[in-house]
Amino acid sequence: MLDVKGISKSFGAGSTAKEVLSGLSLSVADGEFVSLIGPSGSGKSTLFSLIGGLQTPSSGRIAVGGEDITGKTGHIAYMPQQASLLPWRTVSGNIELALRIAGHGDKASIKATAQKWLEAVGLGEYCNAYPHVLSGGMAQRVSFLRALLSPQPLMLLDEPFGALDALTRLQMQQWLLSIWEKHRRSVLLITHSIEEALQLSDRVLVLSASPGTIVDEIIVPFERPRREDLWTDNRWSELKGRIYNGLQGAGGGV
């Protein structure tokens, strides 16, 4: 699905140039959930800007579904850390706008889709409300739906629950899993949380600090649908330890 091949990115030029990513390669298969975990300054945000096409890499190629998208925008569905709902559009209107920017032409059908899904996740009564009435968790649910319903096959989730309190965060992870396991999409998730990465993903990639490069890859062995009490599994703490050590070796705390 997603193929990132030998991406390097430097900012500045000459002796002051700073290499943020160095020869990074990764891939996400169809319907696979991959997490990217790394210390601050490992170039995670830069990587997302590159995949999103907002910046072009100094070298290397990015392809989605076999098509080269290096430096091209509009090929991914995106869920940022802040819900980023337009305050002047209703909850449903925000979802509809994302689908229209993605090239959906049929207004009536996207409206019906948005409303059907909002009802399905228990936000039906907020369809025509403005986003300021939503709680942080509700806003992130809308933001996730907006990305899920977008027609692009690859979803980039950029620390989607980073700004939520611990309890809401756990609930949101379960909620996201319950939807994603029924409606599988290719997902690349950036996170700071080892538990979140293990709970959600099929594979975890550990990134080193600047310049960012992949130092470890963990295939998460837990069967799907995932149990809520994975931490009772012996392998949980073993994998947690392995990722933790990887991050320590990668230079700096989480």
Binding site: F48, S49, G52, G53, L54, T73, G74, H75, I76, A77, Y78, P80, Q82, S84, L86, L97, A98, I101, A102, S150, Q152, L156
Partner: peptide, 21 residues
């Protein structure tokens, strides 16, 4: 800027940014 970044990531061009944001 957060809204701008989001809209650019999903492929909004200059005109869409102007009208929608």
């Amino acid at each position: 800027p957060a809204l701008r970044h989001y809209l650019q990531m999903i492929g909004a061009g200059k005109w869409t940014l102007f009208w929608r944001l």
